[in-house]
Simulated scan of single mutants.
Amino acid sequence: MSPRWEPNRDVRTGRHVVHDLHAHLVFVTKYRRGAFTDPMLVRCEQIMREVCADFEVELREFNGEDDHVHLLVHYPPKVALSKLVNSLKGVSARMLRKEFGGHVRKYLQDDHFWSGSYFAGSVGGAPLTVLKQYIEQQKRPL
C-alpha cells in the first residue's frame, strides 16, 4: 500500500485560483532610530497579526530589533501587498504611539513612526534557475 498523500498546507484555494504566496517584509523606524523595546515588539506583533487577519493574511513569522521589524506573510492573490503594508504600518504606528507615547517621543519627535520605504521580497517555491529551466522546457505546439 502506498503512503497516503498529504496535502501541502501552504497551498490555498479560492474560487478560481490555487495559490501559495509568501513575502518577506521589513519595516524600519524613521531615521533608523532605535525606538523599540521588547514589550513594544510584543505589542507590535499582536497589532500586526490582527491587521493580517483582517486581510485574510497569515503572519507566519515576526521578529525585530530596536530599529526594524521582519515579517513573513502568507497572502492570497487578492491582497495588494502595498495596501497590506500601508495598513500594517499605519495601524501599528497609531497604536504604538498611543500605548507607548512617552517612550516613542524620546526617539521620534515628528508624527512619523516608520520610514516611508520598506522592503518586500517574494519567498518560497523553487529557485529561480529551476523555474526558468522548467518554463524553457515546456513543449510548445508546432
Results as ranks from 00 to 15, higher is better:
V104A: 13
F100V: 12
L21H: 14
A53L: 07
Y134C: 04
D20P: 00
L41N: 09
R105M: 12
V17K: 03
V73R: 01
H68Q: 08
M95G: 00
E56D: 15
A23M: 11
H24P: 03
P39S: 02
P141L: 07
A126I: 03
Y107R: 06
A93G: 11
R12M: 12
T129E: 15
K98S: 12
R43W: 04
Q137K: 06
E45I: 03
T37S: 13
V26A: 10
Q109P: 02
V85N: 11
G101T: 03
S82E: 11
L88C: 10
P127M: 00
M95S: 10
G116W: 12
T29R: 09
K132W: 01
E99N: 06
H74Q: 07
V42P: 00
F62V: 03
G116C: 12
F62N: 04
H68E: 09
L84P: 10
T29W: 08
G102D: 15
E58R: 09
V91C: 04
F55P: 10
A93K: 11
K98C: 03
R12N: 10
R49S: 11
S2K: 09
P141Y: 05
K78F: 09
D20F: 00
S115A: 15
V104H: 13
M40N: 04
D38W: 07
K132G: 01
H70T: 06
L108E: 11
S92K: 08
L81A: 08
A126Y: 02
V57L: 10
A120V: 15
A80P: 13
L71V: 01
R33H: 12
A53V: 03
H74T: 01
K139H: 12
R49Q: 15
K89N: 07
D54S: 10
R140L: 07
C52L: 06
S117Q: 08
F119A: 10
M40D: 08
L59A: 14
G90R: 15
M1N: 05
F62K: 02
K132Q: 14
P3F: 03
M40Q: 06
K106W: 04
C44D: 13
R60Q: 08
L72W: 00
Q109Y: 03
D54Y: 01
D38F: 04
I135N: 00
R97E: 11
K30C: 04
D54T: 05
G34N: 03
D20N: 12
C44T: 13
K78H: 15
Q138H: 07
R33V: 10
R94L: 13
I135S: 00
K139Q: 14
P3G: 04
S82G: 09
A93Q: 12
D10G: 11
V26W: 09
D54V: 01
K106G: 04
H22N: 15
E58M: 02
R49E: 13
F113N: 11
M40G: 05
L71P: 03
L72D: 00
V123C: 15
H22D: 07
H103Y: 05
G125F: 08
V79F: 09
E65M: 05
V69G: 02
A93C: 11
